[in-house]
Design a binder for these strands. Structure first.
Lengths: 226, 226
DNA sequence: GCAAAAGTGTTCCTTTTACACCCATGC
DNA sequence: GCATGGGTGTAAAAGGAACACTTTTGC
């Protein structure tokens, strides 16, 4: 018998957001043991000559058909028996996808991928519940000091969507006027002349995150903090 | 030839602090290739049935004789060619040691371990300069919202030591009175009746971090923020 | 015309900053 | 008695929280 060695995998907690449904996580149904038939976050073994991030994107594409544009390393989970069969250490990432990419392409081989609201998660394989917990915590706190929330919204969004997103992630009501004042003072949003057409009530302007401006302001010492 | 596989290692950035010398990092001189004779942070391959943190503590003991009481996972570095010979993915940690344990025991097999001020680091093996950079950034920011600074001070310390530590880590002068007011309002320091004897000038009271009180206040919703 | 969502400013209170003098000790 | 570091409070400014009415649209 060959000397056993530690296997290295990557896993990804992919978040999606819709103002009606709140925050969701992308899960897949496992079709191999262990935990065959159970739900898990996408992931798999890293190849010998593949960067960690590439491995994540490859697994995401293979298993769910999705490509995330925001991806950040979360934590590495290495407990001895987190995989019941072999020693597998996993580098967990979390990713954010925009609503327009949120619908799973039916045409992929990912028939068994599904979004689950974070308050209605099924029982999960391995320590994936723990990984998701850590990811939620990270997302919740990071959104306050890094402008990553936009990765969960479409490119153009009415201000109320941004407001709802922050209320959802922080889990507390936020005064609409104070929030807008604070955000607009940052000067990183571009107000478009377009208005949102759909829905009831008075249509609101659409906004865009002005990333270039954000980076140049950061260089000048601006601190994002909401 | 056997199929190659990814190797997994751990590395540790161990910080020490003294008010005269500022912040230092513990380095070892490598006695094997690659980078034989060069400086590196302590670390090594993880064993088949060993947790990641245990691996870090074991390597630290073997290579430097030091045991840290604060240890936190930093980031996992997995670039393809970070090790010139094999694919090695490393889980980096950072640790904090108190000044009284700061002196390296001469009696260990760690003759080649040495403290280096973070502003006077030598050229480093692998991507260890990058790892140290990330660790410094993490420490700098984390000290503002987690009471980890005490791990860099002796158990009993005059308030001025805490003050100097924060000035050193944040890299800016901090008003002595405002800093003390803010910290004392947190009610997590215990003022001892002892005074510091050494040195010139008026002796100051010694303080202790009251960890139990800190945890109970956190449960009640207190937020540490300095 | 009514229901639904968007837009907008002011006041109050809390928090943060700036700042200077006296005190205890060693030499 | 002088040099060194420790101890303490107040006033001004800035930032955050609370809060209500008007406007535009669809039905």
């Amino acid at each position: 018998m060959a000397k056993p060695h530690i296997r290295l995998s990557v896993d990804a907690v992919v978040f999606g957001y819709e103002s009606q449904n709140g925050l969701s996580v992308l899960l897949i149904k496992r079709n191999i043991d262990p935990f065959k038939g159970g739900w898990a976050i996408p992931g798999g073994l890293v190849k010998e000559n593949e960067n960690l991030e590439d491995a994540v994107q490859r697994e995401l594409k293979e298993e769910t058909g999705i490509k995330v544009n925001y991806l950040e390393q979360l934590y590495t989970f290495g407990d001895l028996h987190r995989d019941p069969r072999n020693r597998v250490v996993t580098v967990a990432y979390y990713g954010l996808v925009q609503p327009s990419k949120f619908q799973l392409a039916a045409a992929t081989d990912a028939e068994e991928a599904q979004w689950y609201n974070i308050d209605q998660l099924p029982k999960l394989a391995f320590d994936h519940d723990k990984i998701i917990d850590v990811a939620i915590q990270r997302l919740r706190s990071k959104i306050s000091y890094q402008p990553i929330g936009f990765e969960l919204l479409d490119e153009k969004f009415p201000f109320s969507e941004l407001h709802k997103l922050y209320e959802c992630l922080k889990g507390v009501p936020i005064d609409r006027r104070n929030f807008k004042k604070k955000f607009m003072q940052l000067e990183i949003l571009e107000e478009l002349s377009e208005k949102r057409k759909i829905g009831k009530g008075r249509p609101g302007s659409l906004f865009k995150f002005h990333q270039k401006k954000y980076f140049s302001l950061v260089k000048k010492g601006m601190v994002f903090e909401v």
